[in-house]
Structures are given as structure tokens and as C-alpha cells.
């Protein structure tokens, strides 16, 4: 009984997400059953979502901390470019190159966090400029054209599989477990929630807000670096303008997943369900041969619907309490 009230609102939210997933699944079973429910189709879905899924976790951490990270796509591409260059031109072993990408992401994120935290500038502004700086740096490094043709083993990271299970699924699940653990079971994770919920109170409770801000953005940067590796391997190409729609998509995912846009609320589980739901919908559109852009339209409507739903539930909650 006690547990039930704990995260009632979140459970409500996740319930809605699951309901929507079930709806999509049933609808597709009726419309295109055999094609949709094939191993191949599920495989193709799994190949697609990890790159923006990992990115969305980065967005999630920043938003829970009361900010936002609009520079994630820039970090992703910068990481990807560095990784690709190291492999192709410097002959650096793949694991080291990947590590470099992650390190670049961490550096960019830490810089974001440092400026936000120490100068007290809104995260939106800093990361907006950050996007230009990091994308610009990626463009400057490549000099314009994409870097293509990395080794096959690098290509395999995002395109290969064990049996019929793609490697990237393991990467995604690994990231998911680590992120979920950090947010739920570490002091830092709780401090991120406190920071986003009320920065002043966090300070008055003895939380080092500057450190937490920097760490949250660093974590976001690291996740950006990881998704940079995945997308570069997936496309077997690195350039400064890959995945330009992902900023919007990741924002949509986290808000749809129940992260409070004002900070301090939401769960990893909600975001995970939201990632899967959006992939199911995207795939449904592909199967139905609907134009890709219809997805953008539907995503926009979904975002509004999710927010309105949240408002309605909040109001109902308030009324119940008073």
C-alpha cells in the first residue's frame, strides 16, 4: 500500500506509455501483422534506436538537473569525427579511438557544466552556443567533407550482430543499466534530482551545486560521445551535420517519458519506454510506407498530447490532495 503512493504519478505516466505501445502493437498486428511481427523487422528496429536512445539519456540527466543540453548533437558529431579520424588517419586501435570519443564528449560536457554552474548562465543559452562551437569544431577538423570508409570491424559495432541480436542492443542495455543505477542508487544521482528540484535548497542542504552541475553535463557529454561512436559506425561516416534532427527527437523522448521540463522529476524507466514507443511508431510508419516526414508531424502532436496529459493529471492530483 505504501509503495503504491510512492511514485503514483510516474506509474500513471508509464501506464499511459505502455497503453500506447500496446495500441501501436495491436494496430500493426491488424494492419500489417506478418511483416511487422517478423524477426527481420524487430532486428531493423534494434539497429535504429540505440544512437538516439543513448543521446536521450544525456538530455534526460541535464533536464532532471534543471537544465537542458541542446549541444548533444554537436558533441555526438565531434566525438564521431575524432573517433573516425583516429582510426582512419592515425591508425589508432578501435577501443582507444572509442575511448577518445567518450573523452571528447566528457570534456565538452564538463565545459558546458562549468560555464553554466560557475557563471550561473541558463543552460539553454550555454548549450545553444555549445552546439555551434562543437559542430563548428567538427566541421573545422574535417574541413567539410565527411570521413568515410573506416575498417570493417569498426563498422561492425553498429551493424554487426551475435546470431540475430545486434551488438548495439547490448551497448544500449549496458548504458541503460549504468544510467539507471547512477540515477537511482548513487549519491550523485539523488543530488541531480535535488539540484533540479530546488537549486537553493540543494545548496542549503550541503550539496555542492557547481560540482553536481558539472558532473551532470559531463555525464551527458559522455553519453553524447558514446552515441557519436554508434552513429559513426552505423553510417560508416563521420561529419559535422549527422543526426541534426536528434536534438528535437531527444527532447520529445524525455518529455514524453515524463521528465519534468522544469527539472527534478522523472525516471529512467519512463524515458526507456518512451524510446521504445517512438521506435515502434517510426517503424510502423516505415512499414506502412508512410512518408518519413509524417513522423515529424505525429511526434509534434504526441509531444503536445503528453504535456497536456501531464497537466490534466497534475490538476487531478492537486484536487485530490486539497
Amino acid at each position: 500500500m505504501k509503495k503504491k503512493t510512492a511514485s503514483k504519478k510516474l506509474n500513471d505516466h508509464i501506464k499511459v506509455l505502455i497503453l500506447m505501445m500496446v495500441f501501436v502493437l495491436i494496430l500493426m498486428a491488424v494492419l500489417k501483422g506478418p511483416v511487422y511481427y517478423s524477426v527481420n523487422n524487430f532486428r531493423s528496429m534494434i539497429f535504429q534506436f540505440p544512437e538516439y536512445g543513448v543521446l536521450s539519456f544525456g538530455m534526460m540527466v541535464c533536464m532532471i538537473a534543471g537544465g537542458i543540453d541542446l549541444s548533444l548533437v554537436g558533441i555526438m558529431n565531434l566525438g564521431g569525427v575524432v573517433c573516425a579520424l583516429l582510426i582512419k588517419n592515425a591508425g589508432v586501435p578501435i577501443p582507444l579511438a572509442c575511448l577518445a570519443s567518450v573523452a571528447v564528449g566528457a570534456g565538452c560536457g564538463a565545459l558546458n557544466g562549468l560555464i553554466i554552474g560557475s557563471l550561473d548562465i541558463p543552460a539553454m543559452l550555454v548549450t545553444l552556443c555549445g552546439l555551434e562551437v562543437y559542430s563548428g569544431l567538427a566541421l573545422a577538423i574535417t574541413g567539410g567533407p565527411a570521413i568515410n570508409g573506416m575498417s570493417d570491424s569498426f563498422k561492425n559495432i553498429a551493424n554487426g550482430s551475435i546470431g540475430s541480436i545486434p551488438y548495439v542492443l547490448f551497448i544500449f542495455i549496458g548504458v541503460l543499466i549504468v544510467v539507471a543505477f547512477i540515477m537511482k542508487h548513487t549519491v550523485f544521482g539523488h543530488e541531480v534530482y535535488f539540484l533540479g528540484s530546488n537549486k537553493q535548497a540543494a545548496r542549503y542542504s550541503g550539496i555542492n551545486t557547481l560540482r553536481t552541475t558539472i558532473l551532470a553535463h559531463t555525464m551527458s557529454g559522455i553519453l553524447g560521445g558514446i552515441s557519436g561512436i554508434i552513429i559513426t559506425s552505423h553510417l560508416n561516416s563521420a561529419k559535422s551535420s549527422n543526426g541534426s534532427t536528434y536534438t528535437l527527437l531527444s527532447l520529445l523522448i524525455v518529455v514524453l517519458g515524463g521528465i519534468n521540463p522544469d527539472g527534478g522529476g522523472g525516471t529512467v524507466a519512463g524515458v526507456t519506454f518512451s524510446i521504445v514507443l517512438l521506435q515502434l511508431i517510426a517503424n510502423a510508419f516505415t512499414i506502412m510506407h508512410a512518408p518519413d516526414t509524417l513522423k515529424t508531424l505525429v511526434n509534434g502532436c504526441l509531444l503536445v498530447a503528453a504535456l497536456i496529459l501531464d497537466k490534466v493529471m497534475q490538476k487531478r492530483d492537486m484536487q485530490k490532495n486539497s
Binding site: H190, Y193, F194, S197, G264
Partner: peptide, 25 residues
Amino acid sequence: LFMERSIEDNTIASSIRDYFHGMSL
């Protein structure tokens, strides 16, 4: 206070480090 957080979260906000044993809270 952290108005949107639970009573539990608010209660342990300043002492959370005491509950971190080994690997997790």
C-alpha cells in the same frame, strides 16, 4: 525544501552519503 520531492527524499537530503555502502544506496 524540495517541494515536488517526497518526504523521504527531503528527510535524507543532507545525510544521503551515510547510506552509500559499498556500491549503492
